[in-house]
Design a protein around this nucleic acid. Structure first.
Lengths: 336, 336
DNA sequence: GTGAAAGCGCTAACAT
DNA sequence: ATGTTAGCGCTTTCAC
């Protein structure tokens, strides 16, 4: 660092300025009741005058805890993930903790690197907003600090907590909504085969049976680009409504439907999942399931707190999503 | 922390296991050439066996630098801001540094709190992705570590560097694009009066003169909700194209135009700014100006590096945005 | 090539 | 009510 930047003052400097010992400075500045009012004021004034700022590193070193939570997110540009991070941050603040956020870019290696970095920064707990972290990595982390995964990884090792959205319930909710509107032939289109998508599919299939609707019709495609094919088949199969595995897929369906000249939502009703910003931007506004990212983040912090308080057995929390009904769903138009 | 979590091993433990002094462990593990090959291997093995992980806090305390950059962002849910954070992180990695991200939620107080927290964590530099931080706060920060602001604050105090997108050039580029398509009456709609929006307006007005187009017509409204009014007036005034201060405003224009039954882009061409995910999602796809968030972030890290290397005078870097032409702009349809 | 000792800035027992 | 003394885990002279 350039030598022109002045060395920052320490408690020793403040102590000298106030004419007391450094321990007294430490006590006074942290509001210890056993410090004389006059002395305290003198110390506070000297600290102020010197522009003293306590060194969190030194404190953390001696106390053995940093007061910081680490949040490692798969993809910050995904608003849902950003929401979870936000929820963690907010809850952490309420617990008197800070939150450090890192971005993994959907890359398991990068995620592992960040977790490693957070560990060596001695965070007091770790929130992993990703289902792509290797189980072994999670185990390593959990040996050092409490860890909670937000989402649905393929495999969740013992020793780490989890909080997830109830994907199956969300999908059931979507199907019920469509059924209420009068739809009976409802399709499911997914661009993912990961656990969350599988759970959503399961809820969808169950709901069809429960509500005595038409047969299950599922399309698994490799990306939003291939959604067009699914749409064509879906319409040919007589579906009047479709549940997508997420908003991106739903928007792709909407797009293709629009291109095909379909009347929306009469010709086709579409439900997304995640309730991202997309949902309230596209035309027609997309009906979607809100995972409640902030609540998930807050729940994660709760779990960390419990661990810290001594809990030993693992906990897996599941939160109910909320349906946000918008213009992309409506009664089917009468068939000609 | 629960007492069951084993104390993590330190160099002392490794030293004991390898039968050497702790200083030698320190040297060996950091690859100091002056350590015997056999000893080095023995130490490495013991460290491995114990699962030793160096404590970044302790190192930082003695070295006086943490190797971490602090990134404080106004709004992480804004993909543009997330992009900048990404760019910083990537560039930091290249420089062998880490990046800690914090979220300010558009709240100057919260931003200040986070900056404060980062300072007491002794970050080696600060990237402020926000134009809402109080100048005094920036000055305080800059007294401790190099600071660079990404964006256009109302006021930029001496001692802090800045990197910004060339807003005026971007707006000029947009007007030129519209002019090439044959538009002559081009409006400007903004939902902000902040410096970035003002710079964009300036570029817009200059371009109209330079290209000898119709008169300047500007609407300043208080939010995307009021864009409808602006649209009506704009059409009544004979505009065939409009530049918005950002994508959100542009999308609102698109929406209202759609509701009004206008043919797009024939009836109205719209250009946004920021090239967010919205741009490639809405119909028609939005022509927009890409600030190049990642590049801005990388530039910020460059500036921090220069400061660290001893530069004393302030630098303000300006980067050219790129026009992404899409379906929301096209030739005006012949007037009836 | 290796070890001993000092100290980064702070907190926490333990004096006084 | 205030001061003294040890460290926290690491790096860094400076001896050997």
């Amino acid at each position: 660092m350039s030598d022109l930047r002045p060395r920052r003052p320490t408690i020793v400097d403040v102590a000298a300025a106030a004419g007391v010992s450094k321990s007294l400075v430490s006590l006074a500045l942290r509001g210890d009741p056993g410090v004389g009012a006059a002395t305290r004021e003198r110390i506070r004034a000297s600290a102020e005058a010197l522009g003293y700022r306590s060194n969190a590193l030194a404190r953390a070193l001696v106390q053995g805890r940093t007061g910081q939570l680490g949040v490692v997110v798969t993809d910050l540009t995904n608003p849902y993930h950003a929401d979870v991070a936000l929820g963690v941050e907010e809850a952490a603040t309420r617990h008197g903790l800070g939150a450090l956020i890192a971005h993994g870019r959907r890359d398991p290696d990068r995620l592992a690197t960040h977790l490693e970095a957070m560990l060596s920064l001695n965070v007091d707990g770790l929130v992993v907003v990703s289902s792509r972290v290797e189980p072994e990595v999670l185990v390593t982390c959990a040996r050092q600090v409490p860890v909670v995964v937000v989402g649905r990884p393929e495999e969740l090792p013992a020793g780490v907590d989890a909080v997830a959205n109830h994907d199956a319930a969300g999908a059931r909710r979507a199907v019920a909504h469509l059924a209420e509107l009068g739809h009976r032939e409802i399709g499911f289109v997914t661009t993912s085969r990961r656990p969350a998508a599988r759970a959503r599919h399961e809820g969808y299939a169950d709901a069809l049976v429960e509500l005595d609707l038409g047969a299950e019709r599922t399309w698994t495609v490799d990306g939003p680009e291939q959604v067009g094919v699914a749409l064509a088949e879906l319409l040919a199969a007589g579906c009047t409504a479709v549940l997508a595995n997420n908003d991106l897929t739903a928007v792709a369906l909407l797009d293709h439907a629009h291109d095909a000249g379909l009347e929306l939502p009469g010709g086709l009703s579409v439900v997304g999942y995640d309730d991202t910003r997309l949902a309230t931007t596209v035309r027609p506004r997309l009906t979607s399931l809100d995972q409640g990212g902030a609540a998930l983040g807050a729940a994660a912090v709760e779990l960390l707190g419990e661990r810290d308080a001594g809990r030993r057995e693992d906990r897996h929390v599941v939160l109910e999503p909320t349906l946000r009904a918008r213009a992309s769903t409506g009664p089917p138009s009468p068939r000609g």
